[in-house]
Amino acid sequence: MTDGFSRPAAGHVPVLRLGDVLLVTLQGDLYDSTAEQLLQDIGEAIAGDRATGVVINISGVEIVDSFLGRVLAEIAAKARLLAAQTVVAGMRPAVAITMVELGLTLPGLRTALTTEDALRLLGATDPVLRPGGTRPGSP
């Protein structure tokens, strides 16, 4: 990490679909525009795929400032409007301590240690066993 700068991830963050859940993995340092784009993409993905949950894994994120904090909170708010729950998974200790010091406690967000825990929290047990991710009773 200390030797040389890592290239920041530019452009799109892929939004994966896993059963009824959308899975997003944030990695490294994000451009503000990338985060804004993600907010839009997730909104569209929830509406389009009729997902019931969103898991955002941030174990690869080294800092969360108030901007990224706002993006996470807005994703959760948007998802809630579309009847989906959002779980932020894998926040690093140093990031958590800093966010608390900064005054960002994200009260509306659910959190989990890992993506697996997050999926369990959303009640989406073993989504792999249901290929296609069709919901029972979906038309």
Binding site: S66, G69, R70, A73, E101, L102, G103, L104
Partner: peptide
């Protein structure tokens, strides 16, 4: 933003 900019940075 969440209005944490200056005051938040000061605490860090």
């Amino acid at each position: 933003g969440l209005g944490m900019g200056l005051g938040g940075a000061r605490r860090l």
